[in-house]
Each structure stands twice: as C-alpha cells, then as structure tokens.
Design a protein around this nucleic acid. Structure first.
Lengths: 219, 219
DNA sequence: TATAAAACAGGACGATCACCCTGTTTTGAG
DNA sequence: CTCAAAACAGGGTGATCGTCCTGTTTTATA
C-alpha cells in the first residue's frame, strides 16, 4: 500500500488555531504545551513549526484572529445590530449568562484570560490585546453616539458608558469563573440597568426605536 | 573560620512569600519558576521545600495570606472606615488610580491576575480565590446596609451594588494593565458615580455623616 | 549536656518543554 | 515532465522545571 497525503495548509492552520484557542482559554498560555496542542489537533511537530515558528507567534495569531473575532461576534455585532446601545448591552449580557448557565465549565472571557497572563509578559502581546479592548469599547461608544444622533441617550458620555460596560462585563466574568456561577453576571447587568439611566429619561422611550435600524447606514 | 547560621523560620517564610507574591503578580504563576524565587529570596531549595512542600502550596499561601490581605488593606478597611460606602468606593478608586499614575508598570489587581490563571486549573485554587472575591463583595454590601440603617442609600440593592463595584474595578484594572494607562480606571469611577445614584437622592446628604462612625460597633 | 526534632543546604533526577534539524512528500509553475 | 518551493513527518537536543533525597546545623526540651 502506498501512503497518500493531501496537503491542506489552510485547514491545518485552522485546526491548530482551533485547539490553541480552546486550550489557551481553558488552561492558559503557559499551561498549554505545544505537545498537547499537537496531539489534540492531530498535527506533527514539523507541520506546527511550519505554520507557526514559535509559540508566541501562535498565540499572537490566536489573539488577532480568534479572540478579536470572538469579541466581534459576541459583542460588537450584536450591539451594533440592536435598536440601541443599552438594549444591545443588555441582550449580550443575558445571552452570555444563559450560555454559562447550561452545563459545563464557566471558562470566562477569552480576552481577559489572555490579557492577564500575557499583558506584562511581552509588549507585542500587550499591544494586540489592548487593541481588541479598544475596538470593543469604541464600538459601544460609537453606538451611543449613533443613538444620540437619533435623539436618544441624552447627555450620556459615550466613552464613559463604554468603559464601564466593558469593565463590568470583564470583572463579572472574572468572578463568574472563580465562583463557577453566572449569577454575578446577572447581578451586574441589573446594576448597570438600574443605575445607568440618566435622570429625566425613563425607559418609556425604549419601545418604539425600531426606526433606528432604518435610518442608520449599517456598514 | 567557623560557619554561623541563625535559624529564622518565620523570617524565611516571610521572605519567600514576599518574592512569590511579587513574582506571581508581575509574571504570573506558571511563568515564575521556583529557581527564580529561590534566587530572588536568597533561599536554598531545601529551605523552600521545608516551608512549602510544593509550588501549589506556596501559591495557596500567597492567595490566602497575601492576596486576601491586600484586598483587605486596599479595599475592605478603607471602605468600612469611610463615611459611606459610596464615598469609600470613590476614595479607593482614586487612590489606586493615583498610585498607578506614578512611574512604573501597571501590574493589575493581584487577585484578578491569579484568578484568571488558576481558577480553572485547580479546585483548591478556585475556592480560595472565590472566597476572597466573596469577602470583598460582602464587605461592600454590608457597608451599604449599614448606610441604610442610618437612613441613607434608599433602596439600593446591597449585593447588586457590591457586585457591580467589584466587577467594574476588576475589569478596569484589566484594561489598565493591557493599555498601561490608568485613565480607564477614572472613567469607570466617573461612570459609577454618575449612574450610581438612586433617583430622588442627591449628594447633598453626603456631608454630615460622621455619626455613622460613632454608632456602628466596629469589629 | 544529651538528644530528637526542626531548620536549612545543595545536589540529583526524571519529566517536560519549545525549538530545531534532516528528510520525504506534495504541489504548482513553466 | 521538470524541478523548485511549499507542506509535512518525526526524531533529537539542550535547557529548564518541580520535586526529592541525603546530609549538616541549629534549636528546643529535659
């Protein structure tokens, strides 16, 4: 029998990133050995080294391609698509909380996990992680500004709202991970919701805001 | 020349914990080797092994003795000593921000650093870390309840306020570490302050609250 | 002072890790 | 087909890590 092999560089790269993303979130960067990743992905050392010359290069790819994409899918897109920033934030919090409540470990936010472990270890890591945070915050702030252009939101400071939202979410995920309980996420959401509203602006205006979707030119 | 030696078990243990606390915060648990710690503390392998049979035991001691104490000193004591929970929270945020703004790396919150790296690695780690978080939150919630007994704070939900405060702080420290900039801490504080106030309760009542200190039986 | 336990010294060991190197196979361009 | 480059295989290597082990010194107790 002759040996057959089909080269699939993109697929192999994808499989490596898949298991690396998973392992880095579940066990962290330093606790995940390349041997583990090779075994999990069914990849040889030669192939791994061909696509990612160093472990650091692999981690950078995970951050820039996977973690950034996860933040985009989980947070940025839903918030931008929501009728308002506040409703979007609320929807994301609840979606994540619901996801954490079904069986399985609470693994925490992948961005925060890597941010804590790698921010101080290497400046390239730090910058890549800071960029993801910045994009995340800016998307929320932009959404607030869009709401304001539509006559909503009053004088809410966009950057302040975005910073508080991202911080509260990150910190809540931190505690949820330590306590293995998503309840704190819901608590923080309620806290944000009950305090967030600027005075003289009730939630009565929340309802008929479907127009926003029509008027905003969604990119 | 005869060799002299003075046994100082407590001092040696303290020195090891000092460097371990520092290294775990600056570089993380896995990135800190026992060899590094031994060199930094000027301690031999035998002595280290005598006081801490495993690296895990050392980390647990750091969490239970040093990290918990740091949270107590940085957060719990100042908040309990403040005229009100809100003022205490504000004071801590500003103190930490001011500390981060002077030269030197922003190293982040020691509790969060270890929580992210070790929560999922080991259940003993996780429980120890969750306990610190819980004590932290409970202290703030208790302070809110004390304020309410003194006729302040209206209907603020103590647990909700505490969860949001701790989460916002933790998340803000996360971002501050990644961006090496304490500005986000101040942003989050402003966000907490502007949204936090329950309606129909201005900050006019803030001033004459010195009585609280007298009436509460401080433990 | 006698003696056992605690405190400390320092090297050794096996395991593991990230990386590299030498080959082999596949692929695509000419 | 030719052939060079890309893709992949797989073992090797030096370094490092956490732990353990055998001694030696100090200390507490009687």
């Amino acid at each position: 029998m002759r040996k057959k092999r089909t080269n699939d560089p993109e697929g192999m790269r994808r499989r490596v990133l898949d298991v690396a993303e998973d392992a880095f979130q579940a066990r962290g960067y330093h606790a995940s050995s390349l041997g583990d990743l090779m075994a999990a992905a069914g990849v040889t050392g030669g192939a791994l080294h061909h696509h990612f010359p160093t472990k650091k290069a692999l981690a950078l790819a995970v951050i820039e391609e996977r973690v950034a994409a996860a933040v985009r899918e989980t947070w940025i897109k839903p918030v931008l698509a929501a009728p308002s920033a506040r409703e979007g934030v609320r929807a994301v919090f609840e979606a994540v909380a619901a996801e954490l409540e079904q069986p399985g470990y609470v693994r925490g936010c992948p961005l925060n996990n890597l941010a804590h472990e790698l921010s101080l270890a290497d400046d390239e890591f730090r910058l890549a992680l800071a960029r993801v945070f910045a994009d995340w915050r800016q998307a929320i702030a932009d959404k607030i500004r869009a709401d304001q252009r539509d006559g909503e939101e009053g004088a809410t400071d966009p950057e302040r709202f975005a910073a508080l939202t991202v911080a509260a979410y990150s910190g809540a995920m931190s505690m949820a991970k330590a306590s293995q309980d998503a309840a704190v996420l819901r608590e923080c959401l309620k806290g944000l919701e009950s305090f967030e509203l600027p005075p003289s602006q009730g939630q009565l205006t929340v309802k008929r805001r479907r127009r926003v979707l029509l008027r905003s030119k969604i990119g």
